[in-house]
Design a binder for these strands. Sequence first.
DNA 1: CTGAAAGCGCTAACAG
DNA 2: CTGTTAGCGCTTTCAG
Lengths: 321, 321
Amino acid sequence: MTVSNVVNGHENVRPETRARVLAAITELGYRMNTAARGLRRGRSGIIAIAVSTVASPYEGMISAALAEQVARAGYDPVIELTGHRRAGELDAITHSLLRDHDGLILHSAHLDEHDLPLLRGRHPVVVLSEREYDEGFDQVLLSNVDGARAATTHLLDAGCTRPGMIGGRSTPQGHEDVLSVRAQGYRRALEDRALPLVPSAVLPAPYTFAGGAAAAHELLEEHPRTDGIFCATDVLAVGALRALHERGLRVPEDVKVIGFDGLDLGRYSTPSLSSVVPDHAALARVPVELLLTRLRGERLAEDHRREVIAFRLEERESTRR
Amino acid sequence: MTVSNVVNGHENVRPETRARVLAAITELGYRMNTAARGLRRGRSGIIAIAVSTVASPYEGMISAALAEQVARAGYDPVIELTGHRRAGELDAITHSLLRDHDGLILHSAHLDEHDLPLLRGRHPVVVLSEREYDEGFDQVLLSNVDGARAATTHLLDAGCTRPGMIGGRSTPQGHEDVLSVRAQGYRRALEDRALPLVPSAVLPAPYTFAGGAAAAHELLEEHPRTDGIFCATDVLAVGALRALHERGLRVPEDVKVIGFDGLDLGRYSTPSLSSVVPDHAALARVPVELLLTRLRGERLAEDHRREVIAFRLEERESTRR
DNA sequence: CTGAAAGCGCTAACAG
DNA sequence: CTGTTAGCGCTTTCAG
């Protein structure tokens, strides 16, 4: 018991006793068993951050920023990857994300609606999502439609008359994901100006440099007179820049390009990349705050919040007139 | 007990009983308490991957690749960030990385020698490091010196006569880190050709795009006749490409640039980036294999392995003659 | 200020 | 095939 008091820095331990305990700890190589502590206390002090992968620049950046905020709040962050998770019913109960964290921040770029209930454990969950879910979760949303619309409008304002889109997709109502939500914004911008939507100028693409390059080649092949490209992510946009360079097209003179995410990378590409930049600081701070108010029991179980993160459009070389 | 048998998929449960248990689990919303299981079993099934950050492309890629290998081996991977960790003695014992994982893979780019013993818990540790440590750990090493030497030699072979280096540093013997180890390879390459080493042409830099750009500007300011740059990482190199572009210098005609890490990004920059590419697959596979043989008790406690990962030099546009 | 008792939820071993 | 017993290492409570 006294050892416990020492290790946890409690009062009421005579300095001499404390010293003796610490000496023994060092000598014996004692290490706290956190499973036992967690079992007894009923909480682990861990907040999990679940994200599809950390190999993509955007996901990596967000994960790191969230982890920093979690640490700042006095919790231990761990990152779990949802990428290649099998989704058996029982598996979701026994394994999966439901370990003993005190809370979970789930970045669910591609998660299906009916998977979400499986993620409810005993602990609070905040979903960082691309679209609105009906389920009872605290939610932090990006202004995807507005951001994509602003990006496309920016292309039109810069003089583009036939902008295409890379990384878009049309999906049935109720199944929106990043791709389709951003494509929606692209469509709205065209509607605003009463421009015709050319479905074949909206290309889906895997979210990689290679995917962006391939889609840009395809777009220019199909629509040689394309003079602007809205890319659903900055990674896609960098791939597109490369493809345009390979085709001997100049950016921004021949084709203007704009991305989404505000990656640092876009500031250092050649040409530098215009982008819709979400408020990264808020994106890390807000989910953690929502979780904390819940962990502190400051909100009723049924009081679910929905916060929207602001963005700004940063114009760089790739869309200069 | 029967519930336990069902949840763990053990034999010897009548199908009907199993069904009843599963129904109850669903109805009651039962979730396994993994802390209790871990306490009882003495193992958690978790392997931790500790890395400085996941916001950098290289670290993010490696973490994701390691996590995939861990999952493939039947363990649950979690990623912990060592970035801004305070290093109090007791803190390292009670908090820190010493939670209840069954094993730890530590990517220690910048870790100090005498910190390592603190990381020893009850579980095996594999250190993925930039230099050799004396301590008794299994170790996976990159061929940093050889790789940097090959990169610099490649610049010389391409016709450079005054190559500088970005992201290098000289440090006292016994305190080598990535920066100094790669700088060592750069020096060796110059020695091989009996070229003079110009200390002021080796610039340290924070490992960011901005750091690479700033260092490149500084290098060209100090040494305007620089005709080649070896960058300690691809991220630095991309920053340098940007700086050279801003200065109106052409790559590779005026200045040739080569990086290190083999990031996907380097294939899509303009110009594409030559790089020393470590065998990424091996880099993810070997540490997990080392950990597994230990977890399976196939090696004696004192039998520490040291594996070296191969690299190859990929020539792309940034160093074409 | 220090320590004894009890129990967190689970499963290995064993009994029925 | 199902259920009972005991104990993993810790901390909350309460006595000394």
